[in-house]
């Protein structure tokens, strides 16, 4: 009997404790800086083009083969009277968020710091009606970096 009274006392003590839950989805918990959702591509604001040169490093290192990259000659290169130092640039880029296992390896292998893990809530709330909608193309991957919605955290 004493044991039951003791356990009831423990239960009762929660009446004076504050709530520990968050009122999701109306209220969002603050995410840590390193939070990893899905990978995004970054936009070079100085030159107005992506950082990504389409070098296939991330594509080769991806354990689940969720990326497809196509490279092209940069039309904005210095030799073409442009202001960019990048000889090659990404033409097309697809990431299948349905396959991605969020391991951060693509960020680690990138030589140009052109890819980063989304650390905002937009990366976690990605539910769609059709699985094909989870395959992100270049404009979709760039959108958040262009509009300054992510503060990238790249592991050194």
């Amino acid at each position: 009997m004493r044991g039951i009274i003791k356990s009831l006392a423990t239960t009762m003590s929660t009446f004076i404790r504050g709530p520990v839950t968050h009122g999701y989805p109306s209220k969002h918990r603050e995410l840590p800086e390193r939070d990893r959702a899905f990978p995004l591509l970054l936009w070079d604001k100085d030159i107005d083009e992506p950082f990504c040169t389409g070098c296939h490093a991330c594509e080769r290192a991806c354990p689940v083969e969720c990326m497809t990259v196509i490279m092209k000659d940069n039309p904005n290169h210095e030799s073409q009277d442009g202001n960019s130092k990048r000889r090659k640039i990404v033409d097309e880029f697809w990431i299948d968020y349905g396959r991605c296992m969020r391991c951060n390896i693509c960020v680690e292998v990138c030589n140009f710091e052109a890819i980063a893990m989304n650390n905002t809530w937009s990366g976690h709330e990605t539910s769609v009606y059709d699985r094909a909608d989870l395959v992100m193309d270049l404009p979709q991957l760039m959108a958040q970096s262009k509009s300054d919605e992510i503060q990238e955290w790249v592991a050194d």
Binding site: V20, P32, R36
Partner: peptide
Amino acid sequence: EALIDLFEEISGDRMMYAYFRAGGLAWE
């Protein structure tokens, strides 16, 4: 939850950390 929040702050993920590497750790 408190422990998992701590793991998230360190490694970035709540369950699938992918934080250890052969030789050491992925990042500080």
